[in-house]
Every structure is written in C-alpha cells, then in structure tokens.
Design a protein around this nucleic acid. Structure first.
Length: 490
RNA sequence: CGGGGUAUAGCGUAGUCCGGUUAUCGCGCCACAUUUGGGAUGUGGAGGUCGUAAGUUCGAAUCUUACUACCCCGACCA
C-alpha cells in the first residue's frame, strides 16, 4: 500500500495531482501554468509519439515543421478562428532587452518594438495555409499530407498538469485536398487512427463521434472526436479531427487548377492529439496504489528484484537474473534488474508499484531453492509462484493479458456509467452522479447552452454509429431522432 | 479580471493573536555500522537573508504599509 496517498473516492482531483508528482511523471515549474515533464513521464509520451508517428506515416502522412511565431495579421484572416483563440494568445512585442532606466534589471528595449507583433502559435492553421498557398498550383500538387510535432501555447486561466497547461506538446496534421469528399474521408480516417491508438495501445475505450456546432473547432465545418470516460465518470476529449471545408483556403486564397482547368479553392483538414493523452492514460487505469500503465506504453515492462542474505545467494540470483533479462530482451520486452543495495526490497516493491510497472519478479533465495519465482501483476495486484522453467513465455503472455484486462476493465466501467435518461428531473439528479447520459436533444445550440448553464453538462458528441430512434428533447420536448451523449467534462 | 486564502530548510509544519536568548518538529539528505520475503534501526552531521521592500521599535518570523508569487472559488478552455 502506498503510504500517505489520498484515495480516489476521497478526493479524485487531489489523487490525480499527487499521483503525477509522486510517480515522477511531471512537476509544476517556476513558470506559471507550465509544467516540467520528467524523464519517466516523457518516456511514456515518447512511446505514444513513436507509435502514432508510425501510424500516421502508414497512411501516407509526412512530417514537417512550421514556425513557432505567427504574424498577428494571419490571425485576423479567418473570422471564427480569431474569435476562438484571441482570448488566450501570448504576444511577442519586442526583440531586444535593455537595462532598466533605474539601473535595476532588464526591460523590453523601447527602440526594439516589432513592426508587426507575433503570436506564439496556439495552433498552426494560419501559418500553414499561408505556406500551402505557395505550394499549391494544380491538382497535381494535391493532396498534401503533413504533420508536425510541436509545442503550442494557450494562455489558460486555470491549469492542471497534462490536462490543461499553458504550453503543451502535441502533433497537428494539416492536409489539403482536391475534393470535399476526399477531405472528409481524411478527417474520418484520422479519427479512426486516434481511436485505434487509444484502444489498442492505451487500453482506453473511446466513443467515436462528431461534435455539435457549439463544441466545434474555431473555423471548422465539422469536428470529429474520440471521447473517453475517466474513472470519476467525467468525459475527456482525447483527440479531434476537423473537416475545415474551404474556410482556410478562402481566408488564405489557396486555389488550384482542376483537371477541367477551373480555378478552385482547396479542401482542408486538421487533426491533433496532445500530452493531454497522458492525463487520460493516468485517469483511466491508475488506482489507490499509484500509477497503472498498459504494457504497450510502459517504459519499463518488467522489473526484477533480488532478495538474499549471503553473497553466495546473491551470486546465484545474479546469474538467473542475467539469463531472464537476456531472454526477455530477445522477446522485445523492456526489463530492469534492480539489485541496488541502497534500498530494501519492500521499498522497491512500493516504488515500482507506484510507478505502474506492469510486472514484477521477486528473485528470492528461498523460492529459488525450489526453482520458483514470485510474479506480481500490477493491474490486479495479484501474486503467484511460477516455476523458473518457462517463466519468460509466461511473462510474455501475462503482459498481453494485462493489456487486455485493462481495456476490459475500463470498458466495463464506462458501460456501467452510461445510461439512458428521458426526463429533465431525472437528468438533473443523474448528471450529479457522473458518467455518460444518453438523451434526446432538439438539435439547437440554445438548448445545449441552457442545459450547460443549468447543469454544467455539455454534449460530448453524437456517436458515429448512433441508432436512430424517435423521441422528445429532454429539455424542450421537441421531436428528436437520436440520442446524444451528455456529460460533465475535463 | 472579480471574491477568499497562504507565504518559515528540498517537502510538510510549530511559533504570529500578546515583539525579547542559539526559530520547533517530522520526512527527506550526508557519513558510519548493523540490516535485506512489503516503505529497516542506531549514532553522528549538513541544511534558514522566516516571500520582497520600506516603516515602527532598544529589539521584528511576530506590528504597519506597499509589492510579488502561489492556492481555492467564478468567467474561459484541448
């Protein structure tokens, strides 16, 4: 058991904050709203990056890099886009510091004011579409499928590590297409890439859906999303993919000559996931003993811990540990033998448990005499003794089982916390309990906003494979043809 | 930006109301020894401009003023 660690049901948000720090994932920095991602946390992010990067490339996407700074004038070009982001932009006004007139410290040099101020990107659509204009002349130049791994800045009022920080890391894909249909297909394709990644690698079940007009990305025609449910029943938007129509092409005058020699505006998409996925991963699986990681994203999958009294015993354990390490490595399993003498086994057990290492093997002198090894699995916290013979095959299978089990557990929880609600009275009490509420809605933004005002619940999405069913809007009683997902969200 | 709160060692804290020796305690850290099957024990040690600046006073962590930073609640949000 983790010492002095707050339980989820006592204070979920404190549990999360403390977990992030104590599992060595990240810490608050001296810069307001910005965090330091520590090596262990960054290793998880890197695994996500590598996997996603390969998945993107599989679909024909290439990586590129665009500037951090965006001229202010670019932002003014797409009306809705400005409105969405203007309130949270960091602005560069000077390019040089000078000694303060009172001799103490430094001030922006008044002589060095920028002629045109620069915005630190909150997202890169504008600079990218300004660039694409130069790249695109004919239908032969299309499609363009680019992605960039970058940092962005959104000056948030209230921040939480990984879930919402002023600066965060993400990837943003930006594609340009000949036809509306092709762009829409791309949008949906990338949503599925995200969903596959979330479910297969993060072991996190997601709902694939489309956002309502109110929740849509600033400047998009349609926003598709993957929506996950955290253990406290709150929804978390884990990834978005936008069909931008011709909005940015028109704003940045990006036209191409079509096959039939007509000048047409280009069709666009953009899609992204961020370090927010780290928050999603943490809140989907972790428990009152600390972090729980799915084997496919765990930087360390197996840890070996020796227990011995004499040098002879230690030597015997060393030999076995070396053999096991070699065999596991040959199966592409990451393993560490922690024979550091500075801490006792009990301390190590707690440490690796808290950091979410999926499997621990205890190589104890006592068990070894009987040719046995103790195996501990982090997801269920179960221990068992296994014959030394065939231990590596067992672990290989166990890692797969843990991955599956985590997904099933999360899915079961989501199903338990998802229910249909048909009356407004019921809605108001049920929303307090958390989870997803499937309800009829009249399709108007006014109703959506009123519901949000009264209950803090929003429409997370309209699921893609949504069954059609006649019903009445939960709030206005007007006719509706399908249920949508209501929830409180992060 | 509105409303409330906090600031003492790496972390968590006592002391502040009612000013007075060398600023309290726990964890962590360092050294040595004994330990090792679920966060070891003993002994010794290091570590502080009490958020910053000014003021009151013989004397300020303690009283006054200003400033700064952070936290919580709102508005905003991947």
């Amino acid at each position: 058991m983790a010492k002095d660690f707050v339980k989820r049901e006592e204070n979920y948000s404190e549990w999360y904050n403390e977990l992030v720090v104590r599992a060595d994932l990240a810490e608050n920095s001296s810069v307001r709203g910005c965090m330091v991602i520590k090596p262990y946390g960054y290793a998880i992010w890197e695994k996500m990056q590598h996997t996603l990067d390969a998945m993107f490339k599989q679909t024909g996407v290439q990586n590129a890099y665009f500037p951090l700074f965006i001229p202010k004038s670019f932002f003014e070009k797409e009306a809705e886009h400005v409105e969405g982001f203007a309130k949270e932009c960091a602005i560069v006004t000077h390019h040089r510091l000078a000694k303060s007139p009172d001799g103490k410290g430094l001030v922006p040099d008044p002589e060095a004011r920028l002629e045109e101020e620069l915005i630190v990107r909150p997202t890169s659509e504008t600079i990218i579409w300004d660039t694409y204009r130069k790249w695109i002349k004919s239908y032969r130049d299309l499609p363009i499928l680019c992605n960039q791994w970058a940092n962005v800045v959104r000056w948030e009022m209230r921040t939480r590590m990984f879930l919402r920080t002023a600066e965060f890391l993400w990837q943003e894909g930006h594609t340009a297409h000949e036809t509306s249909q092709e762009a829409e297909e791309e949008t949906i394709k990338m949503m599925h890439v995200y969903a596959d990644f979330a479910e297969k690698y993060m072991a996190m079940p997601v709902v694939r859906g489309v956002k309502t007009a109110n929740e849509r990305f600033a400047g998009a025609v349609d926003t598709y999303c993957i929506e996950a449910m955290m253990q406290d029943g709150k929804a978390l938007q884990a990834g978005t993919s936008h069909f931008l129509g011709q909005n940015f092409a028109k704003a940045f005058d990006v036209k191409f000559l079509s096959k039939d020699n007509k000048l047409e505006y280009v069709w666009a998409t953009s899609w992204g996931v961020s370090t927010r996925l780290m928050g999603a991963l943490i809140m989907t699986h972790s428990d009152d003993n600390g972090l729980v990681l799915p084997p496919m994203l765990a930087p360390l999958q197996v840890v070996l811990i020796p227990i011995y009294k004499t040098d002879e015993e230690k030597q015997m354990i060393d030999e076995l540990a070396t053999k096991i390490q070699q065999e596991l490595k040959s199966k592409d399993i990451t393993v560490k033998y922690d024979d550091d003498n500075k801490t006792k086994p009990g301390w190590k057990f707690n440490e690796y448990e808290f950091k979410g290492v999926p499997v621990r093997l205890t190589l104890g002198a006592r068990d070894l005499k009987e040719d046995k090894i103790e195996v501990f699995r982090r997801d269920t916290c179960e221990k068992l003794l296994h014959q030394t013979e065939g231990i590596c095959e067992y672990i290989e299978q166990l890692l797969k089982d843990i991955q599956d089990n985590l997904f099933k557990k999360a899915l079961t929880l989501r199903e338990q916390k998802t229910r249909k609600v048909d009356t407004w009275e019921e809605f108001k009490t049920e929303i307090e309990k958390g989870g997803f509420l499937l309800c009829h809605w009249d399709g108007t933004t006014e109703t959506e906003l009123k519901i949000k005002e009264e209950t803090k619940a929003t429409i997370r999405c309209i699921p893609l494979d949504n069954p059609q069913e006649e019903g009445k809007c939960i709030y206005t009683g007007k006719p509706s043809r399908q249920r949508v997902i209501f929830a409180r969200n992060y």
